[in-house]
Design a protein around this nucleic acid. Structure first.
Length: 466
DNA sequence: TCGCCTATCACTTTTGAAAGGA
DNA sequence: ATCCTTTCAAAAGTGATAGGCG
């Protein structure tokens, strides 16, 4: 199985966002050693499991089904972690951030921008049910977020991650050192994301290639794979949906194409090979990099069907660790809180502004870039306002026991001692209002964001879900 | 009419309790 | 009595599709 090693504080060039459709991420036979230097920087390394599978999906344009009742992700969010302190306890969290500020539609076998994104929903952070656990536990085997579910039900009370359909998102993995859930140590908070895991949320598959990939890689779809269209369906009318007439070929028709896609199921479950290791340095304030790189790398991924030009190809090769935003991580150092009006967050000040991190660094710039890369797109009425969020909001479902303040970094002691400790394997939605006090000003990540208020409520973990 | 969403279907895998054996 | 393995039913998950809704 291929691994993608990701180290904090380095942000190598993204292989992803620009039309990686036809280009595989290069697999390096001998991964470069993970770099760790100064003592105050973490040596935590995060590897994305099933990288080959993720790459296959990413090359086509990953779609994730979201349903009212909640749907698991496929491929799964699964990471391997190393470099943790074996006897320290950590929380493992996942949340999802929009990649850009657009709503998409599937038209003529490709994704197009359909308009401005919906206002962001209160973000939920999924907490791995094993949390908190010792570093040795997390490093023992890959960490699977198998039970994480995505939903489009804004009133969801199950603690599932609520997303908008037809939007693009990216999961972020957070590692937070915490001796117990009530004493979170912000100095050990780190965030990782993988460009390969960007996906478009849909309520029904749009791209048939994705459908094929899912069917041929997901064991739960075996029935469809082996029997093709159900007998029941054979008798049904032939109405096409949801993309009427453009997709839903029967399985017999799918097979050849599936082979064309070079699907190798065994590879996805057995093959393990180091393909790309991103060493981590210490000098790269990821946030700065992320911001500054926005002018060279569109913040949003292009339509999966779109090819990009030379920049995209460059991104498929291992780049100098400090040259990119894509493989970013966020580390919070145990330093003083930054001033509330800063636009750029030095790494060592991340502690105070964790939630501005991965947020779609989009608005106007993106709109421009998008219009360039989507040559076939109709004129967009841009600029679009930046993403919106509602930090510190309670669970919209209003389930009394499920959302509670989790921590308050700006409290007297910043001890973050309000983590809830649910029983393992149990969902629990929790809200917190970290940074809400001054976040409105922090949220503005650059001049492109005209409205501070829009960014102002962006929270990292509005609430967590167990 | 179009685009998106949802309930339902038939199937499979996963899960966990119960039973049995060492 | 404890631990391990096996069995099996229930639960959960899958994509496809008809039909609803705005």
């Amino acid at each position: 199985m291929a691994h993608l090693l990701l180290c904090p504080t380095h942000t190598p060039k993204s292989p992803i966002y620009e039309g990686s459709e036809t280009k595989a991420v290069p697999h390096l036979g001998v991964p470069p050693p993970a770099v760790e230097t100064s003592s105050h920087h973490s040596s935590v390394v995060v590897t994305l499991e099933d990288l080959d599978l993720w790459n296959k999906f990413h090359q086509v344009g990953t779609e994730m089904i979201i349903t009212k009742s909640g749907r698991r992700m496929f491929p799964q969010c699964k990471i391997r972690v190393s470099g943790l302190i074996p006897y320290a306890k950590y929380l493992m969290l996942v949340d999802f951030v929009p990649v850009d500020n657009f709503r998409y539609k599937w038209n003529k076998d490709q994704w197009e921008v359909a308009g401005k994104a919906e206002p962001q929903l209160p973000r939920r952070t999924y907490v791995h049910p094993d949390s908190p656990a010792l570093g040795s536990h997390w490093m023992k085997e890959p960490i699977s977020f198998q039970k994480l579910k995505l939903t489009n039900n804004t009133l969801d009370q199950q603690g599932h991650t609520v997303l908008h359909s037809m939007h693009r998102y990216k999961p972020r993995f957070h590692i937070m050192q915490a001796d117990d859930p009530f004493s979170t140590r912000w100095s050990s908070f780190q965030t990782f994301s993988f460009p390969e895991t960007v996906f478009t949320s849909v309520t029904a598959y749009q791209n048939e290639k994705i459908t094929k990939l899912k069917i041929y890689n997901n064991p739960f779809a075996k029935g469809f794979r082996e029997h093709g269209r159900n007998t029941r369906r054979e008798g049904r009318g032939q109405k096409n949906s949801p993309a009427k007439g453009q997709k839903r070929p029967v399985m017999e028709e799918l097979k050849p194409d599936v082979e064309e896609l070079d699907l190798d199921r065994s590879e996805n479950t057995v093959v393990k090979e180091e393909s790309l290791i991103i060493p981590v340095g210490n000098s790269c304030p990821f946030w700065v990099s992320e911001q500054n790189s926005a002018h060279t790398i569109p913040a949003q991924s292009p339509p999966p069907g779109e090819h990009t030009e030379s920049p995209a190809q460059e991104q498929h090769t291992p780049a100098p660790p400090s040259s990119s935003q894509a493989y970013r991580s966020h580390e919070m150092e145990d330093t003083a809180l930054p001033g509330p009006t800063q636009d750029v967050i030095p790494l060592n000040e991340f502690r105070a502004r964790p939630r501005t991190l991965d947020l779609a660094v989009v608005p106007e710039q993106d709109a421009k870039q998008l219009s360039e890369s989507f040559t076939n797109l109709p004129p967009l009425s841009i600029p679009f306002p930046p993403p919106q969020d509602y930090s510190g909001m309670v669970d919209p479902a209003g389930k009394p026991g499920l959302h509670r303040p989790m921590y308050s970094p700006y409290g007297p002691d910043q001890s973050l001692n309000q983590w809830m400790v649910p029983p393992p394997a149990q969902y629990r939605a929790v809200t917190y209002s970290a940074f809400s006090t001054d976040y409105s000003s922090q949220g503005a990540s650059g001049p492109a964001h005209g409205s501070m208020a829009d960014w102002g409520q962006y929270s990292l973990f509005p609430y967590a879900c167990w």
